[in-house]
Design a protein around this nucleic acid. Structure first.
Lengths: 356, 356
DNA sequence: CTGTTAGCGCTTTCAT
DNA sequence: ATGAAAGCGCTAACAG
């Protein structure tokens, strides 16, 4: 049997119809008589023809029916992040419903990232987790195809989807730091190098934090810390290389065993916060009496651990990105909903407690 | 500025060269004089031309330079599984190195799954986590493009990559069940319905377990249980809907609190085994004295928890699948390496201990 | 090093 | 309901 080497024209020939009738059989079955359709399908079966070639279709239609998702990370990191998984499943749901495929474009950091954008036949792009000045952003703009950035940076020519991270960080930070004497932050990486370690507020100025999401959250925590009477310079910021409970546990153990034991830790992810909870339990530190903990994302984990956290739907944001690229949504920025969910990892009514 | 609407022909015209010179400028720069190249690039810049159109290229070259990865799951499940992440990162590494993109094709379970295969312009397919008789498998074969299945089912016309799950399960099962009086198994789902719950051996006959990996592992555990003097009918098999520590913890707590408390649990994933360890700690059950635990995959988690486990490299297997689709590897099945790593979650020298 | 020709396989457009 | 013509944008093959 010919391994699908047959063309639509050959199928038409064998069926004794014109190429157009064969084409309609696959694309507009309702426009073809029952009889012609049967002949075409029979001929196709005989020739082992599995359907119109997608590459030729793409060229002719001017559309590949594919959306490119640019992951600003090595794939191993991207898939380790539950947030990325949720986001992608939102993207995939919308794309599948519209008959679109999803092409993954991991960033290598090398100079050929931009070329990879141009060499992809996707009809549009969604960019996840990137940094200020990423050449990929201008490549997407230059490609002339629609693009959305999730979480920033805001880019001329691209739509932006995300939440107001600074506002959310401020609000959850107010809860975390209420009544605290030594607030601390457990942060995502500041840049692509993903260097873990402890810094203090001043090292987190905007210019040094190219990841927009991380930067905005740090800014929000800073506002909260100040509102609770602390100088940002005194706030310890422990950076984790990834959104991983085990790494966070080690970092938290180190903080909690040190000379200036924090009594409040605001973490940028529920995974990180979960690690803090484990470290606290191991060290006999009571939550929330001795230590307030907050997370981010309101994942399953947060519910189980009764974590105070920021609730947002990354799946919905992924869907919004896909809607935009597919043109179903207006081409404007989309600021998604978020709320702070207060649970047992912070003191009740902490938001309303007076500062120390 | 024209949003990349210009064609290569127009660029050539403006540069005063033939289309082929323009084409060579992008595809074989070394064949073009410095001067011509400069003229072409200048014209391209003026016209906002970002490079040759990928859709036209794909048609002309007969290749989209893209590999399709079929995930036999809803995307949210697939990305929650650390094994899938490792596998995909192996696929992506090889593809990126070869200049290929990766298109994700989540299975919906609906009748249009096969059509989605045909409508994708990928040059070949990698199928992850599917079940016996999945129509997707015959669709891949019918597409006439190369295909590999990871973990089975073995399919005429497709290559197969994976480990000998039955042999590995047997070997790790011998360690887990050494000296045990009441061995139990914590299993992955038996089929796509992902029904969680407790069954016994007889309900795990091949005919009822369409997931080949799960089926083969159950078979291996059965062999091990019998070798340790147990009837498979007496072995409790607790099925988890997903490879998730929290779900496993609940399942294990239920088993360990019940009337026939197991003293050995072989789990099909390190995440599941981690949940068992947590349940044991909570209930004051000592590992390995009161309970032997084994996992699968030798993940970071396994090392941290000192789990006896099956070590395999899913990233390497993903790479092997990609190599095959890209034609770099011989078109034959690839049985990957595995070993059982013994750690503290089972008794020392358990493999050599006499049966009870 | 550069150019000419031809056509990848399909579907839009417009007729019948 | 069916068909004829045209060409999507590019590059393989083969000159020069």
């Amino acid at each position: 049997m010919n391994r699908s080497r047959a063309t639509l024209g050959e199928v038409a020939g064998r069926a004794g119809v014109s190429p157009m009738t064969a084409s309609y059989t696959y694309n507009r079955p309702e426009r073809v008589s029952e009889e012609a359709r049967a002949k075409v399908l029979a001929a196709a079966a005989e020739l082992g023809y599995a359907g119109p070639d997608a590459k030729a279709r793409s060229l002719r239609r001017g559309s590949s029916r594919t959306v490119g998702v640019v992951l600003g990370e090595q794939l191993s990191y991207a898939f380790e992040d539950p947030g990325a998984a949720a986001f992608l499943s939102g993207v995939a749901r919308v794309c599948a419903a519209a008959g679109y495929g999803v092409t993954i474009l991991p960033i290598t950091g090398a100079a050929d990232d931009a070329r990879r954008i141009h060499e992809t036949s996707a009809d549009g792009f969604i960019v996840w987790t990137t940094v200020d000045g990423d050449p990929v952003l201008s490549a997407v703009v230059a490609s002339g195809r629609p693009g959305v950035v999730h979480g920033g940076p805001a880019t001329e020519g691209l739509a932006l989807v995300g939440i107001d991270d600074a506002a959310a960080a401020r609000q959850v930070g107010l809860v975390a730091f209420a009544g605290a004497r030594r607030p601390a932050v457990l942060s995502f990486p500041l840049d692509r190098r993903r260097i873990a370690g402890v810094v203090r507020g001043p090292a987190t100025t905007a210019a040094r934090v190219p990841f927009p999401v991380t930067r905005d959250r740090l800014r929000g925590y800073r506002t909260a810390a100040r509102a609770r009477g602390h100088s940002w310079s005194d706030v310890v910021v422990s950076v984790c290389a990834r959104n991983d409970a085990d790494e966070a546990e080690r970092a938290a153990r180190s903080l909690l065993s040190g000379p200036h034991r924090p009594d409040a830790i605001a973490a940028m992810g529920d995974e990180l916060a979960g690690g803090v909870m484990r470290a606290a339990r191991t060290l006999g530190v009571r939550v929330p009496q001795d230590l307030a903990v907050t997370g981010w994302d309101d994942s399953r984990r947060a519910r189980e651990l009764k974590l105070t956290t920021v609730a947002q739907s990354l799946a919905e944001q992924g869907a919004a990105c896909a809607d935009f690229v597919l043109g179903a949504e207006p081409a404007r920025d989309f600021s998604a909903a978020w709320t702070v969910v207060e649970r047992g990892s912070t003191a009740a009514n902490a938001a309303r407690r007076p500062r120390t």
